[in-house]
C-alpha cells in the first residue's frame, strides 16, 4: 500500500487513534477510563450491528445472543481453567466459534425469506438463550452471575484500556475495508434492491449469510471484552435491554456509516452514566427506557439517517 494514496479520512482516523492511545496518560481517573472502555466495547458491538442493519438491511432483535456467548465463554474459561492468557484465548476462541455457528444457522434458516423472519427468529432465540443461561445454574450462576479473576497482564486498567483500544481500532479499519470492498458494495446493493441484485447474478443469500456471520463474530468479540472489563458475567448479557441499547446507538449515530454507531455508542454510554446519577432528581430517570424508547421512535420517524447520515447528506447537497 502506498502511503500517498491513503484517503484524507484515513489520516483523520489514524490521528484520532493516536490520540486515543495517549488518552490514558491524560485521563487517569478510573471511573472515566472505565466509561471510555465501555464506549470502545459498545462501539464494536454497534459496528457489528451496523454491518447488518445499515449495510445489508437485515434486522436482528437478538444480537445479544452473540455478545452473550462471547461474554459467557470467556467468563467460564477464566473461572474454570484458571486466570491465564491461555484460558482467555481458549474462552474467546470458543465464543467466536459458537457465535459463527449460531449466526450461520440462523442465517441459513431465515435469510432466504423476508426480513421479518430474521428479526423474529433472533428475538425468539435470544429469549431461549436467556432462559438457558438462567436455568443452567451450575455453569452460569443464573441471574446472580459469577465473578472471575483476570490474567495478571491485563489486571492493570491501562493494559485493559490498550487491549480494548487495539481491538476497537482493528475492527473499525477491518470493517471499513470490508464495506468499501466489492463485497461491501454487493451488500449495499442488496439493501437497496434485493431483486435487482439477484438478477445481476449475485447469490444474495450467500452474501447475506456471510454478513450475518461476520457481524456475529464481531459482536462476540465485543462480548469477550465486556466480560473482561466487568470481571463479572450474569444473564444481563442476554437481556433485551442490551439489544435496544445497540439499536439506539446505531440509529442515533447513523445507519450504514460505521463511524455513526461509534458516536451513538459514546452518546448512549454517557447518557447512561448521566441518567443514573439523575435518578434522585426525578423518578422518570429511573425508567430511562421510556426516554430512550421515545427518543428512538422520534429518531426513526423524523431523523432516519442519524447524526452522521444527516451531516453527510447535508455536505453532499452543498457540494452539488
Amino acid at each position: 500500500m502506498n502511503i500517498q494514496n491513503l484517503e484524507k479520512s484515513t489520516w483523520f482516523y489514524l490521528c484520532i487513534t493516536l490520540l486515543l492511545f495517549i488518552l490514558p496518560m491524560v485521563i487517569t481517573e478510573r471511573s472515566l477510563q472505565f466509561i471510555i472502555i465501555q464506549i470502545f466495547i459498545f462501539g464494536i458491538f454497534a459496528m457489528s450491528y451496523d454491518l447488518l442493519l445499515g449495510y445489508t438491511g437485515i434486522i436482528s432483535f437478538g444480537h445479544v445472543i452473540f455478545f452473550g456467548l462471547g461474554a459467557y465463554t470467556t467468563g467460564i474459561a477464566l473461572d474454570r481453567l484458571g486466570a491465564t492468557i491461555g484460558s482467555l484465548v481458549i474462552g474467546a476462541f470458543i465464543g467466536v466459534l459458537l457465535a459463527a455457528f449460531v449466526s450461520l444457522l440462523v442465517g441459513m434458516l431465515t435469510l432466504r425469506l423476508k426480513s421479518h423472519f430474521y428479526a423474529m427468529l433472533t428475538l425468539a432465540l435470544s429469549g431461549l438463550f436467556l432462559v438457558a443461561a438462567e436455568k443452567w445454574r451450575p455453569m452460569t450462576g443464573g441471574n446472580d452471575g459469577f465473578t472471575f479473576r483476570l490474567p495478571d497482564i491485563i489486571r492493570e486498567p491501562n493494559h485493559l484500556y490498550i487491549l480494548c483500544l487495539i481491538f476497537f481500532v482493528l475492527i473499525f479499519f477491518g470493517l471499513r475495508r470490508l464495506t468499501n470492498s466489492p463485497f461491501g458494495k454487493v451488500l449495499m446493493a442488496i439493501r437497496e434492491n434485493e431483486n435487482r441484485t439477484t438478477s445481476l447474478g449475485y447469490k444474495v443469500v450467500y452474501y447475506k449469510v456471510i454478513a450475518s456471520i461476520v457481524s456475529g463474530v464481531v459482536a462476540s468479540l465485543a462480548g469477550v471484552l465486556y466480560a473482561l472489563s466487568l470481571r463479572f458475567v450474569n444473564t444481563g448479557v442476554f437481556a433485551t435491554d442490551l439489544t435496544i441499547d445497540v439499536l439506539l446507538m446505531t440509529i442515533i449515530g447513523g445507519v450504514g456509516t460505521l463511524i455513526g454507531p461509534i458516536i451513538g455508542a459514546g452518546l448512549v454510554e454517557l447518557a447512561h452514566h448521566w441518567l443514573s446519577s439523575l435518578a434522585d432528581v426525578h423518578w422518570i430517570f429511573e425508567r430511562w427506557i421510556i426516554l430512550y424508547g421515545t427518543l428512538y421512535i422520534l429518531v426513526v420517524i423524523f431523523f432516519p439517517l442519524g447524526i452522521i447520515g444527516t451531516i453527510r447528506s447535508k455536505l453532499a447537497g452543498r457540494n452539488k
Binding site: S115, A119, I284, I289, I290, Y292, T294, I297, V300
Partner: peptide
C-alpha cells in the same frame, strides 16, 4: 402514530414497533 408514518418501509416499521413495545412495557411500570 407509530405504523402510519413509516408505512411502506419495512425496516423502519420493524424498528419502530419494537421501540413502541418497550415504551408500552415501561409505562406499565410507571
Amino acid at each position: 402514530l407509530i405504523v402510519r408514518p413509516v408505512y411502506g418501509n419495512h425496516i423502519q416499521q420493524i424498528l419502530i414497533t419494537l421501540g413502541f413495545m418497550l415504551v408500552l412495557q415501561e409505562f406499565i411500570k410507571v
